[in-house]
Nucleic acid binder design. Structure first.
Lengths: 258, 258
DNA sequence: GCTTGACCTTGACGCAACGTCAACGCTGCA
DNA sequence: TGCAGCGTTGACGTTGCGTCAAGGTCAAGC
């Protein structure tokens, strides 16, 4: 008769594993001696070896019993099923590794390269880091909402930057973070934005990329809370009938003077 | 301000995940409104997206924080480490799949093919299923003890089967499971075993394959408990000075008549 | 006989990343 | 005003054991 340590050693598993198999009913509890010690026989060793072999091959313990009792046909079928699961798991891990490789290669953890390129371009145009951080956060959120359209959206933004007036606008916005609410340049910025929006509307560009209004409000709100000047800017635009600067659209009449 | 549902939706994660990140300190708890509801801002969305991106790439949550705070050099280093872990995991799963494939192809879950072949040969030689089951269990245990030597051991056993007397012995042992203790054929079997053991000893074969005595006792004991005739057989051999039939060795004088 | 160390027992927490109730409060709309 | 749909905390479940904790048992040496 064997102790639990011996049976575990002979089967090549740990004592804890044996007790676990008892607990889940995979290995029947053997008899006890008068001290309460479990006493095993050779059959238990054999059973443990079979369990260990299957478990080691990736079979979940919950299926080991059925598999050991199955006829050859069902056995192969069960194995196939488990193999499919393992294959799926490997695929998942491989896709994870691909993403890790891109991160290690310098990709931003939350932004596609096109957006990073766009932000870099803004920096070279003289936009400062504080404003860039705001843009970055906004684009992280936008990219997460419409990942499949983000590249084309950024292509559009890049095209806009070919217009010197747009470049000038971004430089003003960047500076504007530190303006006070009564800075006269805010009106200048509002004029600039309005000109660009009118031009966009006349060109039939709505700027709509499929984001819901709640989300646009969030972007708007974030910008406004970043600086008092931004808040003032929005007020001016709203007084002129524009729904902030995120949407290229005029407000409905009944929203006009809230 | 956003509710937990909104922040989770915008970041593409579940509400439960957000709460989990709070719990483990990965995402700071935001403020509450007067009803106790958590109120989030856009920064939380950004943070969540970053967390989700890394987690989705296989980064353990316990390392996400460090990774997000790391400088580019440490970041790449951390990613490398995680990638190594994923690679190791994939290797493990692939090795599992190889074992599953062998099982599906008909391999016994606990016996190498050489042993299965040996057992098949025994069956064709007229050994019956009850005895074969005993042999099988014994070989399962032996193979688990000395997996690297099992093939050569089996090669030796196959060589033995070229001797007609050995074949005859196995046929007798197979029949013997149902003999009563006083069956005269037991002595015949003992004679046969003794002849073979004497011959082996003279040829310098000890039969030692590196199994400890405790384990050999277990095998012995299992066989003895399988049938009264086997017990009788062992008694006869011990009376003649042989240490059972598992070891090809004579007992020390002081073990002779216990 | 006594100590000591190795082994046995049950019970319970820990891990990883949440999913899924349960029980109850808050909110917004018909 | 009632109800559906959100929010809150708390706690258990998943997978396969590892790892204490707090004892009882056993064999060996003094």
């Amino acid at each position: 008769m064997l102790t639990i340590n011996q049976v575990a050693t002979y089967a090549g598993v740990t004592v804890r594993a044996v007790r676990h198999y008892h607990q889940i009913g995979l290995l029947p509890e053997p008899g006890r001696n008068q001290s309460g010690y479990r006493t095993y026989d050779a059959d238990a060793v054999v059973r443990l070896i079979q369990i260990h072999t299957l478990a080691d091959a990736g079979v979940p313990l919950s299926q080991v019993q059925d598999l050991l009792d199955a006829d050859p046909e069902a056995f192969v079928e069960g194995i196939q099923k488990i193999d499919d699961d393992l294959r799926a798991e490997i695929r998942r891990l491989r896709s994870s590794r691909r993403r890790l490789a891109r991160l290690a290669a310098g990709d931003d953890p939350a932004l596609p390269p096109s957006v990073v390129g766009y932000l870099d371009r803004l920096r070279t145009l003289g936009v400062d880091d504080r404003y860039l951080a705001l843009e970055r956060n906004a684009w992280i959120m936008i990219a997460a909402q419409v990942p499949e359209r983000i590249d084309s959206v950024i292509a559009g933004k890049n095209a806009e930057l070919d217009d010197p007036e747009v470049v000038r606008l971004y430089q003003l916005l960047s500076d504007g973070l530190s303006w006070s609410v009564d800075d006269p340049r805010i009106v200048e910025v509002a004029d600039c934005i309005e000109r660009l929006m009118v031009r966009a509307v006349e060109a039939g560009e709505t700027g709509d990329i499929g984001l819901d209004n709640q989300f646009l409000d969030l972007l708007d709100d974030t910008a406004v809370r970043a600086s008092p000047a931004a808040q003032q800017l929005r007020s001016i635009l709203e007084a002129r009938g524009w729904n902030g600067w995120i949407r290229t659209e005029r407000m409905a009449d009944d929203d006009r003077h809230p």
